[in-house]
Nucleic acid binder design. Structure first.
Lengths: 141, 141
DNA sequence: CCGGAATGTATATTGTCTGTGGACAGTATA
DNA sequence: TATACTGTCCACAGACAATATACATTCCGG
């Protein structure tokens, strides 16, 4: 096929809903620029078969991403990645991130992950934040 | 009163369950060492009143923390913070943290939080990770 | 020693959410 | 135009969250 399917993995045993896992995983790829505007995602039935879930569950994830402005959903055309300008942050966006980050780190430490590993992972992400393309050029057809 | 109540805030409108918010918030305080062994947490009814929820919801959060080894629950005595050794990390602990961290950062960027702010918050936490007490000494009665 | 109050626990109930099944509607292609 | 493919809608079963209510246990005052 002309474009490789984005490698998504979800954990059906996890308490976090499947469609939310799909949203989080795809959004990470979108933010990272691995899914550029114009990209065509797999059909809901195709991705559902790959993940072993119902196509309606994938459809709900796609709808959530479309509501965020990432995707354009059309019948027969599938899901197309849009060029999405970064929105103005809401009043709580930064504070919410800080709180969730603190709780996530606390959870990792409580699970026994060495503090050095936690710090290293954050430092790795910081580095990748510096190398961000400020304006990704449009993909070619 | 002799010991200040830990300041916990939960968002009843959030889709994440209230008892999980309590668990995450208290665990962050426990990991940070702000709640030392011997500390007595508010009673389930007291904290429930403060948060505007049912006392059974707080009790469920306390039970979850007790199952993790953080608290000792006894009738009439309330919840007492225990000295909890860091467990050996499970096989997926580190990888799970890395994945969740990446998705959390992607969410923040998608919400419009400036990459510099995201990096700064992570750097701030890294610094606090260096200043950790390797072995907190037992509190005195 | 006893009784009441305080506190965590157990059970039942109600509403919400998640995932699925199946039918429907729209669109590109032959 | 006919057909196959694709996203959408509606209804249902099961699980989960939060509550109401009653109970069991423990401390304290007399």
């Amino acid at each position: 096929m002309t474009q490789e399917t984005p490698s998504i993995r979800i954990d059906l045993a996890s308490p976090v809903p499947a469609y939310q896992q799909i949203v989080a995983a795809l959004r990470a790829l979108l933010v990272a620029g691995e899914l550029k505007p114009g990209y065509r995602l797999p059909t809901v039935r195709q991705l559902a078969t790959d993940l072993g879930i119902h196509h309606n569950t994938v459809a709900e994830a796609y709808r959530a991403l479309a509501a965020e402005g990432w995707l354009d959903l059309r019948r027969r055309l599938g899901a197309t990645v849009l060029a999405r300008p970064a929105p103005r942050p809401g009043p709580h966006a930064k504070a919410d991130f800080a709180r969730n980050l603190g709780e996530l780190v606390a959870k990792a430490l409580a699970d026994g992950v060495p503090p050095a590993s936690v710090a290293a992972e954050m430092a790795r992400l910081e580095a990748s934040l510096s190398n961000r393309d400020p304006e990704p050029e449009g993909g070619r057809p």
